[in-house]
Amino acid sequence: MSSMTGMRDHVTAMATQPAVLGAAAILLALVVVAAAAPWFAPSDPSDLASLDLFDSHLPPSWLNGGDARYLLGTDSQGADLLSLLMYGLRTSLTVGLLAVALSVTIGLLLGLIAGYARGWADTLIMRAADIQFTFPAMLLALLIGGLARSMLPVNQQEEAAFFIVVLALGISHWPHFARLVRAAVISEAGKNYVMASRLSGRGHAGILFRHIMPNSLNPVFVLATMDIAFAIMTEATLSFLGFGMPASQPSLGTLIRVGYGYLFSGEWWIVAFPSLVLVTLVVSVNVVGDWLRDRLDPKLR
């Protein structure tokens, strides 16, 4: 992915697989919708003054009792579901991407140190990773998120929710990256060009960041793509359980949690549309991620 020709090769190769192409197109569309939400959403759900309780509990516009102003219907507050979805998608994607960025940063740094320094630093870092690997990442994220929340006073929990979720997801997944980077660093460090660079008098930091790191990034890139699906899904799970994003700043998971309460009164749309968007998003990330993995790094298969 380093040069434009490389990029074009990938696009050409993608065109031969309709399912992957379709998933990539859907993913792109979702990202555009999320990015453009403030400009294209019919209304701003955080603007409470615009809500009208007379418009609450409306079904999608094509159903009996629907209203043309609200394409996908409204929730219990009278908020436009389509707008809620666009903003929710934006929140889900933002949290997911930042969480992966955090995992990659922690994992890359610790992996580089462990693989290059070896010795006690290596032992310490990898032992910590092993201990974390004993527990499923989802459970860890829930524990970190839930416990961090309960350490804060109630009035600060909503404001801090965003950071807590990113932190919980980021911490819960760094060992995957650290292991990958460490292995890549160890195999690179033994190669002749590193030896040559060392003999020519380059310092450790120079060798590590200018030579070894760039050559260890490919598998990290692949894993990071796959990890976005995990992060989005885990964030949704945390929010669904009530330990993620608050209702004042809803992600797709929060919308599903709120909508679940109305399922039994037959108002299926409040929970169905966020679920559909979430599943579509995760499936398309997974399909594109699988394909990237097969192309860039057959070893990971």
């Binding site: 699906a229 899904m233 949704a236 799970t237 669904f240 599903i256 679940y260 399922l263 929970v271 679920s275 979430l278 599943v279 995760v282 499936v283 997974n286």
Partner: peptide, 12 residues
Amino acid sequence: VGVSLPTFVVGI
């Protein structure tokens, strides 16, 4: 699709 379905969505 199976691995992409969040557990709680399946339940709902």
